[in-house]
């Protein structure tokens, strides 16, 4: 009997976790069930991060292990894959700022938490956020920025969303190294998340997902 994948992955035991996935796939198990276990493991990883047991390297490493697992599972997966039940979120680093590490971790955590994430990349002009909101109908937008210069770009992005008549349709969260409550007020965003898991918590709250 194979060992518990959720526990092994949550404990970041890469070799064991990959071996379990191989074994289960060879035994002809439904790949969706394997992904379900993996997603429960990621929930545990997120919880451990929130409680201060895990840190960013643990999140990053869990992502690497998950990548290896996905590569094994993907070829066996029927088209369509797992359903996304968390809702849609648009994420991007604001205009003029090309920092991506924090943004990528947020995208990753939202993704493994079941959200359908539209990652617009870095140095994203305000109008691109507006267009994506119109096109996707996503009710949540995350603005990332590392530089103090991002304060203005965030403010302008929120303003552009307002000018497009979409401010009531979306909740906006911001995040980054020099972001505080004061800056949240300054930019006109709804809230800021101090880390990736806080971002997921906000997205869950706003989308009504569990």
């Amino acid at each position: 009997m194979a060992k518990d994948l959720s526990k092994t992955l949550a404990d970041l035991k890469e070799d064991e976790a990959v071996a379990i996935v191989r074994e289960r796939l060879n035994a002809g198990e439904d790949p969706l069930r394997i992904l379900d276990d993996a997603s429960r493991a990621m929930e545990t990883v997120g919880k451990r991060f929130s409680s201060g047991e895990y840190f960013i390297p643990d999140l990053v490493y869990s992502g690497e292990i998950l990548k290896s697992i996905n590569e094994l599972v993907k070829p066996k997966l029927a088209k369509g894959g797992a359903a996304r039940k968390g809702g849609k979120v648009i994420v991007g680093t604001v205009a003029g700022d090309i920092h991506d590490i924090g943004k990528d971790i947020v995208v990753f955590m939202l993704d493994v938490s079941g959200f359908e994430v539209y990652d617009l990349g870095v140095d994203v002009p305000a109008k691109k956020f507006v267009e994506k909101i119109k096109e996707s109908g996503a009710p949540i937008v995350g603005l990332s920025g590392f530089l103090t210069l991002a304060y203005d770009a965030m403010k302008q992005t929120v303003q552009a969303i307002k000018d497009a008549g979409l401010r009531d349709k979306v909740k906006i969260m911001i995040g980054g190294g020099q972001i505080t409550d004061e800056i949240t007020k300054f930019t006109g965003a709804d809230a800021y998340g101090k880390d990736a898991v806080a971002g997921v918590t906000l997205a869950r709250k706003w989308s009504g997902a569990k």
Partner: peptide, 11 residues
């Protein structure tokens, strides 16, 4: 890089 060194800490 950040991701690289973090994964190296484990691998």
């Amino acid at each position: 890089g950040t991701r690289g060194i973090m994964v190296d800490m484990y691998r």
